[in-house]
């Protein structure tokens, strides 16, 4: 069996796995909730991958990266740059809207981070923000994009604080604001947040992360409001895990000795 490389992205909401072969082609992609009460869900996913592929090297990334044994631990910003650069070999910006943060990464054509920005300690405009507000508005996440696309409203949420934004939404509901306008208003709040970030001009902006994957309407709204060359990467939720897999492959190619015992025998550390 030829060698494969595993990237694991332990995000705040979901854990994503990507396996690539020696030609850097994706041969497996899986996603499970990070905060599953049952640790065995993670163990089972790992065991399954390790039994099906001849994994030569593992790179873990995401906030939970230190909670799995791996050959490499890289930040999600480094992996996002590497992941998007697998297919987009150009100088670019990357906007990664995750569960609890927003990141802007400037990457060179080879996937090295040249500059970056992360939001401060606040979840406004992130996946958690959308989930919390949608929950208060009794909106189904899966229908939000479709609903928002039916609205032309410019009504947006003023509060930066997720908790206060929930109170604001309550006022909208009592005021009889149509559900389509509420959906669009939540997205406008996210766009407002992104608009304040230091985005560089003159290069394409690639979107990745779970929020873009689940809220396709947001990409169009961002393009309209930011007046930027915005492109959504293929399988946006997996871009960071793909970068991790790619870095695992590069690690093996950097003339290090091949592991003697296969990863299948390795026990995962307990969180």
């Amino acid at each position: 069996m030829n060698g494969s490389f595993l990237g694991i992205d332990l995000g705040s909401s979901y854990t994503k796995f990507i396996v690539i072969d020696e030609g850097a082609i994706i041969v497996d992609a899986e996603v499970i909730p990070t905060l599953s009460r049952r640790r065995e869900v993670l163990d089972k996913a790992m065991s399954g991958i390790l039994s099906r592929f001849n994994i030569q090297c593992i790179c873990a990334t995401g906030y939970g990266r230190r909670n799995v044994q791996a050959d490499l631990h890289k930040t999600e910003l480094i992996c996002a740059a590497a992941g998007v650069s697998v297919t987009h070999k150009m100088h670019k910006s990357i906007l990664d809207i995750g569960g609890e943060d927003i990141k802007i990464i400037e990457s060179d054509a080879n996937g090295s981070v040249v500059d970056f920005y992360m939001n401060n300690k606040c979840s406004a405009g992130t996946g958690t923000f959308i989930t919390e507000i949608a929950d208060r508005a009794e909106l189904d996440i899966a229908e939000m994009s479709t609903l928002a696309s039916k609205s032309k409203s410019d009504r947006t949420i003023n509060s930066f604080c997720t908790v206060f934004a929930k109170s604001e939404i309550l006022g909208w509901k009592f005021g009889g604001v149509p559900i389509e306008d509420i959906a669009r208003g939540i997205y406008l709040a996210v766009v407002d947040r992104v608009h304040k970030l230091p985005l560089k001009k003159g290069m394409p902006l690639f979107l990745c992360g779970g929020v873009i994957a689940h809220h396709p309407f947001l990409a169009g709204l961002l393009a309209e409001r930011l007046q930027a060359d915005i492109r959504v990467v293929e399988q946006p939720q997996y871009a960071v895990a793909l970068g991790a897999a790619r870095l695992a492959q590069e690690e093996m190619m950097s003339a290090k000795p091949v592991r003697e015992s296969p990863w299948i025998t390795r026990k995962l550390s307990k969180t």
Binding site: K74, T75, V113
Partner: peptide, 9 residues
């Protein structure tokens, strides 16, 4: 995350 990325950069 910020520090590890910065140092690598």
């Amino acid at each position: 995350t910020k520090i590890e990325t910065f140092v690598e950069l």
